[in-house]
Design a protein around this nucleic acid. Structure first.
Lengths: 336, 336
DNA sequence: GTGAAAGCGCTAACAT
DNA sequence: ATGTTAGCGCTTTCAC
């Protein structure tokens, strides 16, 4: 009963293996009788086509590699759900890898996926300078970038308007009267990190507000790092900004804990905004004013894109921008 | 440059394909000179071994299927991290699938994994009656159950002591003076759901406390369901229990929102305990008294187990219980 | 409508 | 130490 092959089925049904294959794929004429005979044989022997062998012939593995920096972040989990909901309908499975924002690890993972001959890769790279993507494409493995862009690569991209949204969010703080605004930056090797920072700077500059050196913190998209950096500012340096802009949800969470531990109330003592909603937002007081990205939709679009790309590798790369919303909650104090 | 095979390398280096294979695997004697010649050829042609072809020969895919009910739950994400940290060292990749507690979907996913010829499967089944697991094992695909057991299957298991922990947690409530305790059950088709309920009942019975029908809620491990059910009890029926036992974190979150919306303070108005810590616990007042499982460790153990099992399919199945802690926080009121 | 046979890229037994 | 060859399970072209 173990590892029944097409050959066994053929013998059992007393036909050739070619016929079995034809029944299996239903792509060539087979007489009704033989077809039934074969199907019966398959059933009785509990035959399952070996997809490895199929892949070897067809060069199609029905495997999509998904490479993300942080799988505990619900933002990326939503993306996975979005991707899966689209591609699983076409019988694709996802190989999930995460990199922890570590570029070396990312390269290893990509290499492994390439050897596994995945049909395509969906990538949120931890480095704008990822040159390996070009190699992948040369090797005929299409890549769709999600959330994070890279330099010089002529590939499909699905991302948010990080610059614009950061600008909007900062502008909102400014219009609420804030000037002493601290930014907790994300990973500045990453397009989103850079663009959010640029958006922030542009808004500040456009309103002629100076950004103090002390108020530029590097949180690398990490909860812990953000916690440390904000703590250094507030506890060690004893500087309390009027508002804090956290460049992602994890860092907003770390920031909130510092504030909580030091009995600084949001928004009375410090205002806080974040790029991407924090976990369990609904249960936390106050809800944070934030940019809310549509991660599920991004995932779905990426799934569609990758399916199209697998079918047509020559089409011109597309860049899709998924709009994010500014959600105003009660975490920003109005200053006269 | 595209799809260089062992054959191309052989021609380029002017040796036989066998020699190339030998260099590739470094498992047979090859003279230093030829070896270098071949390595050079590989390099210059940018050769990458086709792991599909290898798999076809060896029957080893270096793929492990991971099937989980809910990937947005940090509990399961930690499990993935644990698994990955162990198996990626041995060059395994993970195919991730989630089932949303839907058993049909689970069966589909398992079938797909079996056809993909994964080397093994790590499964948190959404039904104790999963008989397909036996088929998988017959097909020579080892299975390790994680978190959730199934009936009658002679397979490796790595789980928590759900009964015991639920008993402990309930006993704690009782010792704090609670009698009107409401349980929000998980999925009662699942071993954890059942055992947690059983543990709860046993503790109640041992202390001669009657469980009221109104206080047995079915939340199916779903945030939304729990929210609905608790709301029905508290808002529609206008019954406020003295304490609530939520059988997992998502349901505790749903429950908390109902309480919050109805201005019921924890623990003053209602006490609440949960099986597994909620997301962003640190930022939420009050922190919930809970059973804290060691998900990362469970994942690591599962990873080790699966590697051992792949190496030795005949060894007797093991069952490992990972201990959970009762973490007492301020969410339970002491009643005289 | 069906069968024979080549071949996908690789490994390993056998031969030299 | 190296080459020749069969074969892993399947698809597909070419005969009939």
């Amino acid at each position: 009963m173990e590892n029944v092959t097409i050959k066994d089925v053929a013998k059992y049904a007393q036909v050739s293996i070619a016929t079995v294959s034809r029944v299996l794929n239903d792509n060539y004429p087979v007489s009704k009788e033989t077809k039934e005979k074969v199907l019966k044989a398959m059933n009785e022997l509990n035959f399952k086509p070996n997809s490895i062998a199929r892949s070897l012939k067809s060069n199609i593995t029905h495997l999509i590699g998904v490479v993300l920096p942080d799988i505990s972040n619900s933002f990326f989990m939503e993306i996975i759900k979005g991707i899966d909901s689209v591609v699983s309908k076409e019988e694709y499975s996802l190989i999930l890898s995460y990199t922890d924002e570590n570029f070396e690890r990312e390269l290893n993972v990509l290499k492994r996926l390439s050897q596994k001959r995945v049909d395509a890769i969906i990538l949120a790279s931890s480095n704008t300078d990822n040159k390996y993507v070009d190699d992948l494409i040369k090797e005929n493995i299409p890549v769709v970038l999600i959330d994070r862009k890279i330099k010089n690569s002529n590939v499909d991209v699905i991302a948010s308007d990080d610059f614009g949204s950061a600008y909007t969010l900062t502008k909102y703080l400014i219009e609420m009267g804030h000037k002493d605004i601290c930014i907790v930056n994300g990973n500045l090797n990453v397009s989103t990190g850079i663009e959010r920072y640029e958006g922030f700077k542009a808004a500040m500059m456009d309103h002629n507000i100076e950004i103090k050196d002390d108020f530029i913190l590097n949180g690398y998209y990490s909860w812990e790092k953000a916690y440390e950096e904000v703590k250094k500012l507030i506890v060690d340096k004893k500087i309390v900004p009027s508002a804090i802009f956290a460049a992602n949800n994890r860092m907003a969470e770390g920031t909130m804990l510092v504030l909580k531990e030091n009995h600084l109330k949001i928004p009375d003592d410090v205002s806080l905004v974040t790029f991407e909603e924090i976990e369990n937002q609904k249960l936390i007081e106050p809800k944070l004013t934030c940019i809310k990205q549509n991660a599920l939709l991004m995932g779905k679009k990426a799934g569609q894109m990758i399916l199209e790309r697998i079918k047509d590798k020559e089409a011109n790369p597309k860049e899709i921008v998924v709009v994010s919303d500014l959600v105003i909650n009660g975490s920003v104090k109005k200053i006269n």
